[in-house]
Amino acid sequence: MCLAIPMRVVKVEGDPDDFTTSQIATVDADGIQKEVRLDIVDHWPQVGDYVIIHAGFAIHSLVEEEAKKNLELLKQLADTMPEELLSPLNVNEE
């Protein structure tokens, strides 16, 4: 039910403060484009950001840098497990 793959935003429509407008983003994953609703996304995305989607609704948006950093973090963990990433593991303290 939950897919954690971020999709890249290529177009944004609607007014974030007015849900009577149609709040829709077009997203792209590997060349496949589709529309997702933005009614309940936590932060209003810009073109180039990434969103995580649940049942047709974007629920979370990440800026590109953040998305890449997180992918990179996962990759590093997978590759080498640098000590500084492993020992405190306090990535949640933002």
């Binding site: 954690a4 009614d39 309940i40 996304v41 936590d42 995580i52 629920i59 979370h60 990440l62 953040e66 998305a67 997180n70 593991l89 306090n90 990535v91 949640n92 933002e94």
Partner: peptide
């Protein structure tokens, strides 16, 4: 409580969704 999924989850959650 610890969060190892900070790229998606924050401490407060999603306020727009909660409000809706």
């Amino acid at each position: 409580v610890e969060n190892v999924y900070p790229r998606v989850v924050s401490w407060e959650g999603n306020p727009r969704a909660q409000k809706m």
